[in-house]
Amino acid sequence: MNQIIEVQSVSKSFGGVQANQDISLSVKEGIITGLIGPNGSGKTTLFNSIVGQHPIDNGNILFQGKEISKLRVGEIARLGLLRTFQQTRIYNKMNCVDNMEISVSHRGRRFGSMFSSRKGEILDRAEELLDFVGLYSKRFLISGDLSFGQQKLLEFAMALMNDPKVLLLDEPTAGINPTLINGLIDRLKRANEEMGVTLFVIEHNMRVVMNLASHVFCLAHGKLLAGGPPSEIQNDQKVIDAYLGAH
């Protein structure tokens, strides 16, 4: 299996706060990788660094062997590396179908396609994916009127619509009704298996991570603490200490 994302000794500080310190890790293509760590351990900062939200202080980030740490958010997204936000972000004055349609991949698009018609396969795909996340019946509602959980599902569907190679999910289960979490886990797995999307997931809920990921990294205080299969991480004394120490 290839390493699709390689983070090589990346550091990032905000003023005096070292959010990420010399972090090196890699994400294998085709599987689900988890990222855990106590609050403030630098998980979201790492995500932001990978997708180009801010410049990194030093280190390299490779995507499919290509250096991306100098590229801008849009360029990285068009390469097929996408993320969802912890605070869900959708286009809240548009309806769900429109949200989906505009999320179609802009990789290698020509200028003229800006004005292409709204009918056809894009619409079919949008409805199919809305059905996949269970929002088909809500498709003509203004997305800002949906509940938080539904918005989260919509954002996930929008990301899939973009046909990414890798999808970075920032706490996909936060704020979702516990009874629906299993359904969501199932959908994440199906997206990974059926659509071939590599997933890199920040998750607080240990049960979810252990259930979902086949490889897990743990951050604490801005540093990489451990990495390995879930069973190993679960019993790693350093990880346990970090979690207990933080609470």
């Binding site: 997708v51 801008r72 958010v73 849009g74 997204a77 068009r78 996408l82 993320r83 936000f85 972000r89 959708i90 286009y91 809240n92 004055k93 548009m94 429109d98 349609e101 505009i102 999320s103 991949s105 802009h106 990789r107 698009r109 396609s113 800006m114 004005f115 292409s116 018609s117 709204r118 929008m158 990301a159 973009n162």
Partner: peptide, 26 residues
């Protein structure tokens, strides 16, 4: 113009430009 995908893109910019950027819209 408002019947093409163009309108969706500019509406997306209105609602959340950073998100649109992060989704790869130029």
């Amino acid at each position: 113009l408002y019947s093409t995908q163009f309108i969706l893109a500019i509406n997306a910019i209105r609602d959340d430009e950073d998100k649109a950027e992060a989704m790869g819209i130029k």
